[in-house]
Every structure is written in C-alpha cells, then in structure tokens.
C-alpha cells in the first residue's frame, strides 16, 4: 500500500537515470505514533468497568405489623447488631436481657460471629440497627458479610432508645477498663 514502486524505475537496465531509484516509500512511523496516541486516549476515557449494584429489600413500613413479626421470632435465633460511629459493631443475642459485646468488620470479627451463630441455630435472624452517625459503607459492609455467610433472613430497622442506652453503657464500661 505505502510502497508504490515508481514505475519500475529502479530496475532499468541502462541505469542512466539514477535519480529514479529513490523509492516512494512513505514513512509511516509518525502516523502509527498518532494512531496509538489516540487509541490510548480513547481507551482511558472509555468507561470500561461498569459499577456493580447490590439489591436490597426493605420491610414494609407498617408499625403494627412489624411488632407482630418481632413477637413471632424465637429469641434464640435473633442476633442484634448495632453499627457504631467509629467502625465498630455492638452485638447481642436474643431479644431481652442483652449481654452487649463489641467487634469489628474484619474476617475474624463479625464473620466469625455469624458462622458460630449459624452452627447453634438453624435459621439465624440478623437485625441490623445503625446509629445516625455511622457511615454508609458500614451498612454495605454488613450486608456484604450477611451475603458472604449465606444468612437469608435479615432486616434493617430503626434504632431504639434502649439500644442507644446500651451502647452508651458499653462505652462507659470499656473506657473505664482502659483507664485501669
């Protein structure tokens, strides 16, 4: 394509006309440079990786019905989580007389607790309550852990004043123990 021979000028037997030997080859290098520059540009501006989505289903906002559901739950199956303000998780088992404990989002933290809970009861019900100043990523992380451990039943509910009081108490206890 680019090498257009000048009418076979280079192969004349007589060799009188020397200047005709100059080939008409076009130097493609700058063109290739340009082409690859543009390719790079378009590759970088193209959004190749589309973001993912996580499906989430919220319970119906019907207060009477919700209380009914809660009463139907067997207390032993319930695991309550309270997402704290500084990437910590407070959790307790059952519905009343809670024994509050603290953990975090690492694989040794909440995932272990989920797995242990799964061994003791058939269907774990995780109730997630987030404090107002906890982060959005905390919610996504905890839903992720729920999905990783294959827990089918979970719900995100509003935090109650009792839970807030429990968290405040727990914080007091832990700060007192660090002072000692």
């Amino acid at each position: 394509m680019a090498e257009i021979e000048g009418g076979g000028g280079g192969k004349q037997k007589t060799g009188k006309v020397r200047s005709k030997k100059v080939s008409t080859k076009v130097d493609m290098t700058p063109m290739v440079d340009l082409a690859f520059l543009l390719i790079t540009f378009f590759m970088l501006t193209t959004t190749l990786s589309k973001p993912q989505v996580m499906k989430i289903t919220m319970p119906y906002k019907d207060k009477d019905k919700k209380n009914q559901d809660m009463q139907d739950l067997k207390a032993s199956r319930v695991l309550n989580l309270i997402l704290g303000e500084e990437d910590e998780i407070y959790y307790y088992h059952g519905l009343d007389q809670p024994q509050m404990e603290v953990t975090d989002y690492s694989a040794d933290g909440i995932r272990k607790i989920f797995n242990e809970k799964k061994k003791t009861v058939d269907t774990v019900v995780v109730i997630i309550k987030a404090m107002d100043k906890s982060k959005f990523k905390n919610i996504v992380d905890i839903l992720d852990e729920v999905h990783i451990t294959n827990i089918r039943t979970y719900s995100i509910v509003d935090i109650t004043p009792e839970d807030l009081a429990l968290v405040a108490k727990e914080k007091e206890v832990s700060s007192a123990s660090t002072e000692k």
Partner: peptide, 21 residues
C-alpha cells in the same frame, strides 16, 4: 441515607439497589 430509605418506604418502594464497586 436513612432519610432516602424512609422516603422510599413511605412510597412503598421497598426494592432498590445500592451502587458498589
């Protein structure tokens, strides 16, 4: 985030998705 979610719940739109990487 909860403000958005409760707005959706008020409209009975309980299924939605969250964007993640």
């Amino acid at each position: 985030y909860n403000k958005i979610v409760s707005t959706l719940q008020e409209l009975n739109l309980n299924n939605f998705s969250l964007v993640t990487t």
